[in-house]
Amino acid sequence: MLQLLQVHTKYGQVEALSGISLEVRGSSLVALLGANGAGKTTTLMSISGILKPSSGKILFQNKDLTQLDTRKIVDLGIIQCPEGRRIFGNLSVKENLRMGAIRRKDKRHLDQAFARVFEIFPLLKDRISQAGATLSGGEQQMLAMGRALMAEPQLLLLDEPSLGLAPIIVDTIFEVIQRLKREGVTILLVEQNAHLALEIADYAYVLEKGRIVLEGSGASLRSNPDVERSYLSEVPEENL
């Protein structure tokens, strides 16, 4: 479904991605792991067209995305739920969700999209007219994901959905991720919490300094001693 071929992306003067190749098959969940600054977010921002690769190809259903505007990439069904949630704090929950559906042409089905998001995250319905900034961290993550789901993504790019959240909220979020996967949404998941990510991932890539250093099925990476040493020994503090 999605293929990155030798993608190089510069972030300012620094080359943040030095030739990344990876593949995400339809209806699968692929995890992208790595330390801070390894290039995970840069990879997602390159797919979304916010950052333009200096070379390489990003193919989605065999169509090259590298020359496309972010809007066109959204139109293809590639939706990103960015790191740090980045909800619109001054906008109400409803307005935030509406922004998620902004490229949808079929505004008639908007009610259905709202209903679906509220079914997945019932909490959001209770907060519908509250400003995004007044929500708790967990609620904001739900809003960010709900906003992405409003567009009915074919490929969902999830950047650090568990970052800074209480364990119980992380569980909720990961249940939703698994549910989406069951419903056929293809997911590329960036996570610092490698334990959690490898548990639900079909396949995973490990990034280091802008290169892929390791790849394999979720299960095989979990039992890989290198991964164990570099990424699984350190459980992020907020998830203890």
Binding site: I50, R86, F88, G89, G100, R103, A151
Partner: peptide, 15 residues
């Protein structure tokens, strides 16, 4: 209003 809050997030929505 969304764009004035977070231009990148606004672009990611397809605004």
């Amino acid at each position: 209003r969304a764009a004035s809050q977070d231009l990148v997030a606004a672009r990611l929505m397809g605004i």
